[in-house]
Write a protein that binds this DNA or RNA. Structure first.
Length: 267
DNA sequence: ATGGCCAATATGATTGGA
């Protein structure tokens, strides 16, 4: 079920080790046929990224890798231009959590970023401050990009539960870095620049999740949260066709704890 | 008894995830 002509299918997926799940990834690529894929938590350096298997399916690749942890990548059926790795604003930040590129399609272009926002737990450690500052740096970048008035998709694992309806039990998450009022306020500040949550442009349903913990039987009990988001500029939002969450991917053998979510956007 | 997992690492215990 590929996208229609003159549309781009843009997906994001926290794959939780691209090497371990390369067969799961290629099978999904063949099935869904996304034009652009934003990967997070690839957990390998650039040289260890399984390029050949993905290039064989017709994708160009841009990687911002890191040993063991983090790491983001962009896959695209079209050429990747103006690749930018990392966010400005903290020269001491050595974590690979951001990669951005322009997707060049005949007669059109779309800018896409793959983002792995810090988790931030425990909240009484420097990790939470790092998360909040990372969102500030993303806000700065988003403000610059929105000025261009282009089709823009900031996609990734935001580690933010935007609203109570995006989680199975708001009380259970009340004191967590993913759901604290301070976290959500900063996420809303980002959205307030003029970004649109693609899923919420198409549905106001509660219980639409993208992550289920490996622990405590979270998946069989459907105790999930929605933390993977596609944020669209007004130009991209105006061209949105549909959004899908590939929930079936959580049922695969050796799944990631996140599932892919994608949007079709007219070029 | 209120838990239960998983990935990477010069690996068999630790760190990080959410």
């Amino acid at each position: 079920m590929p996208s229609l002509p003159n549309t781009l299918r843009v997906a994001t997926w926290n794959i939780n080790s691209v090497r371990l799940r390369i067969d799961l990834l290629t099978g999904w690529l063949k099935d869904i046929q996304p034009d652009v894929v934003c990967l997070q938590e690839i957990k390998c350096i650039d040289e260890a990224f399984p390029r050949e298997e993905i290039e064989a399916l017709g994708y160009n690749i841009a990687v911002h890798g890191q040993k063991s942890y983090n790491g983001v990548a962009l896959l695209s059926k079209y050429s990747l231009e103006d690749v930018k790795k990392g966010l400005d604003g903290d020269e001491n930040d050595d974590q690979a959590r951001y990669i951005e590129a322009v997707i060049s399609v005949a007669g059109a272009a779309m800018r896409v970023a793959s983002i792995y926002l810090p988790n931030g737990n425990p909240v009484d450690t420097p990790k939470y401050g790092y998360k909040l500052r990372f969102i500030d740096r993303l806000i700065t970048r988003a403000r610059e990009l929105l000025k261009l008035e282009e089709k823009l998709i900031l996609a990734g694992d935001y580690n933010v539960i935007p609203h109570a309806q995006d989680c199975y039990d708001a009380k259970a998450w009340a004191n967590d870095a993913l759901f604290l009022p301070t976290t959500r306020a900063k996420f809303q500040e980002l959205m307030g620049l003029g970004l649109n949550d693609a899923l919420r442009l198409t549905s106001d349903e509660a219980g639409l999740y993208t992550f289920w913990d490996y622990q405590a039987g979270a998946w069989p009990k459907n105790l999930g949260i929605r933390i993977d988001h596609l944020l669209l500029s007004p130009e991209a939002a105006d061209s949105l066709v549909q959004v899908q969450i590939d929930k079936h991917m959580r049922n695969q053998e050796k799944p990631s704890d996140h599932v892919p979510i994608w949007a079709d956007v007219r070029t």
